[in-house]
């Protein structure tokens, strides 16, 4: 039975991260007059767009009770593939010819590569029962290695003005990456809330045994989720590459940790079944605002890391404290 008090506290819990964000913004506005401006706001959003893409995919995985450590490497590899195809195409050794790629073609192949790498993660996890932590740890190294092989350790740069629009363009006063992130978020919210597979994702994370007995094809759902996360990491890679006008062989290192941090701060349980994409967006925004604020306040980068880590810890402690009360 729900008492009024309980309804109140659960709705408080629901808006917990929003409240935390509001408090953070108010404090920063007081401390720095540069913080609460439209320019700075858009700046923050542009910076977190990539993390939002990766973290939404991560959310889907974490909701099933899994984890993906390979997204940073997939980001680098797919960014490099897109850049390489755009710039050099594919060489066909037999006939000594090149196949050129249009912007659209290169982007599609980059996304597809991410999808396949993610699919492979899901495949090893479901087919051979490799724990997700291990399977994706292996992919982290493998994909990074392929990135080095493909780029021969050098950046692929000068990718042309039209490609640069993806990462640096503006439309109607808002940066293009923000639109991309918004579409990703809306699409995943839609999938998790309105579709069958969304329900299955929550069901598997909530109780895999019960989900299996209910006739759900668990392997299929898991593989799909890892594949989506791979594609979203590739999308992040394309944005990063475009913004820098260069595919860096060591792009995206430790991005998986930022994504996991956003998921966790957003209140998604690492044991699965509980949480939401909206929460993750809040988590990513909190991290972004915090980074931005600390820079504006001239806090040393070393302290920034301490603060960020503490926030992650605090968020989870508050979350757990709320759970224990239930």
């Amino acid at each position: 039975m729900t008492s009024p008090l309980k309804t109140y506290s659960t709705s408080l819990k629901r808006f917990q991260s929003l409240i935390a964000l509001a408090v953070l913004c108010i404090v920063l506005s007081i401390l720095s007059d540069k913080f609460f401006t439209a320019d700075n706001g858009l700046n923050v959003l542009r910076q977190i767009a990539v993390n939002i893409c990766i973290a939404t995919g991560m959310t889907l995985i974490v909701l099933t009770g899994g984890i993906d450590l390979s997204v940073g490497s997939i980001l680098a590899l797919c960014g490099a593939i897109t850049a390489g195809l755009l710039k050099n195409g594919i060489e066909v050794p037999a006939s000594n010819t090149f196949i050129g790629f249009t912007l659209f073609g290169a982007v599609v192949v980059g996304l597809l590569a991410g999808f396949l790498l993610g699919w492979f993660n899901g495949f090893t996890i479901t087919k051979f029962n490799v724990p997700p932590f291990v399977a994706t740890l292996a992919m982290l190294t493998i994909a990074r290695g392929f990135t080095m092989l493909y780029t021969k350790g050098h950046p692929i740069s000068n990718l042309g003005d039209s490609f640069a629009i993806i990462g640096t363009g503006w439309w109607l006063g808002i940066p293009v990456p923000v639109y991309i992130a918004a579409v990703v978020v809306l699409a995943t919210v839609f999938i998790t809330q309105k579709t069958k597979i969304g329900r299955y994702i929550y069901a598997i994370g909530g109780n895999e045994q019960a989900a299996k007995l209910s006739g759900i094809n668990i392997k299929k759902v898991k593989i799909t989720v890892y594949a989506i996360a791979g594609a979203l990491a590739a999308l992040g890679g394309i944005i990063v590459t475009s913004r820098l006008d260069s595919a860096q062989p060591n792009a995206g290192i430790s991005y998986e940790l930022d994504a996991i941090a956003a998921v966790v701060i957003g209140g998604t349980s690492l044991s699965g079944g509980k949480g939401s994409v909206w929460g993750t967006v809040m988590g990513a925004v909190i991290i972004g605002v915090l980074n931005n604020g600390l820079v504006l306040l001239n806090v040393s980068p070393f302290w920034q890391q301490v603060v960020k880590g503490s926030v992650i810890l605090l968020a989870v402690i508050i979350d757990k404290a709320g759970e224990n009360k239930e």
Partner: peptide
Amino acid sequence: LHGLILNQTIKSNISITIL
């Protein structure tokens, strides 16, 4: 252990088999 997803609503538990 095998019948319910305890942290989900009554509604989602009932509908899971015929989504």
